[in-house]
Each structure stands twice: as structure tokens, then as C-alpha cells.
């Protein structure tokens, strides 16, 4: 998934091994499910905002959907162990969690504005 920037000089990276437990594939699928879930959630929010005529909600949800989808299309998980044996999960996790938080904040703000007599 990522370039072997941490590989030591002079060390030839061995070809990626296949894991008999298919762990990389399962992890790649878990990523796909998560991305799909975030996109579906964002589309649900966008559709509700559209129906209620709330343009800000539609825009926010659309931005979340695009920001979630684009990286996973540009660099899809390939289901192999990285040749250098080092995984880079943190930045991807932080990004997805940030997008979920954005979705949650927009949803909660909308719900609260409805609860307390907003438009």
C-alpha cells in the first residue's frame, strides 16, 4: 500500500508473502466496508438535508462523502502483506475517524436544531 520508506539501506525487500489466514484480504475488506459505511451515512445525511431544504447539511455531507471515497479509489488496499513488513494504519485511521466525527457533528447539530425549534 505504501512505499518502503522505512527499509534499511542495502536490505533487499523480499517479495510479499501470502498469509494462509488471509489476514491482509480481510483487512482490505474491512477497510472497504468501513469506507462504504461512511459514504452511505453521508449520502443518507445529504438526502435528508436535501428533502428538508437545508443546503449547508447537503454540502457538508457531500464533502465528507467525496473525502472518504477519493483516497480509497486512488489507492485501494491490495490485500498483500507489505514487502518491508511495516504497516501504516495510523494516518488512514485518523482520517476516517475524523470524517466520521464530522458526520456525527453535522448530524447532531441538525438534530439539536430540530429539537429546540430550529428550521
Amino acid at each position: 500500500m505504501t512505499p518502503p520508506e522505512g527499509a534499511r539501506p542495502g536490505e533487499r525487500p523480499s517479495p510479499p508473502e501470502r498469509d494462509e489466514g488471509l489476514q491482509p484480504e480481510r483487512t482490505a475488506l474491512a477497510w472497504q466496508r468501513t469506507v462504504l459505511g461512511v459514504v452511505v451515512g453521508a449520502l443518507l445525511l445529504a438526502a435528508s438535508g436535501l428533502r428538508a431544504g437545508n443546503g449547508a447539511v447537503v454540502w457538508a455531507a457531500g464533502v465528507v462523502a467525496v473525502l472518504t471515497l477519493v483516497p480509497s479509489v486512488l489507492r485501494p488496499p491490495d490485500g498483500r502483506l507489505p514487502s518491508h513488513g511495516r504497516l501504516y494504519a495510523w494516518s488512514f485511521l485518523v482520517r476516517v475517524v475524523g470524517l466520521v466525527l464530522a458526520l456525527a457533528v453535522v448530524g447532531a447539530a441538525w438534530a439539536l436544531s430540530q429539537a429546540f425549534g430550529g428550521p
Partner: peptide, 19 residues
């Protein structure tokens, strides 16, 4: 990721409920 998906499910449920 499973925890993230659980969170997404709750957020989507909340959005569905409010709409």
C-alpha cells in the same frame, strides 16, 4: 475499523431518526 463501523452505524441511525 469494527469500532469505526459501529460508530458509523450509530451516526447513520441518528441521522435516519432525525430525518
Amino acid at each position: 475499523l469494527a469500532w469505526v463501523r459501529t460508530g458509523v452505524g450509530l451516526v447513520a441511525g441518528g441521522v435516519a431518526l432525525t430525518s
